[in-house]
Amino acid sequence: MNLFLFVLLVMQMHSVTPVIHTLQYFETASSQVPNFPEVVIVGYVDGVEISYYDSNIRKTESKQDWMNKITAEDPKYWQRVTDINVRNELITKHNLEVLKKLFNQTGGVHIVQWMSGCEWNDETDEVKGWHQQGYDGEDFISLDMKTWTYTAAKPQAFPDKLKWDQNIFILDHQKYYYTEHCPSYLKKYVKNGKKVLMRTELPEVFLLQKTPSSPVTCMATGFYPDLADLFWRKDGEQIFEDVEHGELLPNHDGTFQMSVELKVEVTAEVEGKYECVFRLSGVKEDLVTKLERRSILSNASHEGEKDTFSWRSQYDAARK
Rank of each mutant, 00 (worst) to 15 (best):
L8M: 08
M13A: 07
H21T: 01
S30G: 02
F36E: 04
P37G: 02
K59L: 11
S62I: 06
Q64G: 00
N68D: 11
K69P: 00
P75S: 14
V81Q: 14
N88G: 06
E89Y: 03
T92Q: 14
V98D: 15
L99I: 03
K100I: 06
L102S: 06
F103M: 04
G107E: 03
H110L: 00
S116E: 14
W120E: 00
K128A: 06
D136P: 10
L143G: 04
K161E: 14
Q166C: 03
Y177F: 15
Y177R: 13
Y178G: 02
K187R: 11
N192H: 15
G193S: 08
V196I: 05
E201F: 03
L207T: 07
S213T: 13
P215W: 12
V216G: 09
M219P: 00
G222I: 07
D226H: 06
L227Y: 15
L227V: 15
G236E: 07
F240N: 06
F240R: 07
E247F: 12
Q257A: 11
V260A: 12
E261N: 15
E265V: 07
E275T: 02
E275Y: 04
E285M: 12
K290I: 10
R293T: 05
I296G: 06
N299A: 11
A318Y: 07
K320Y: 03
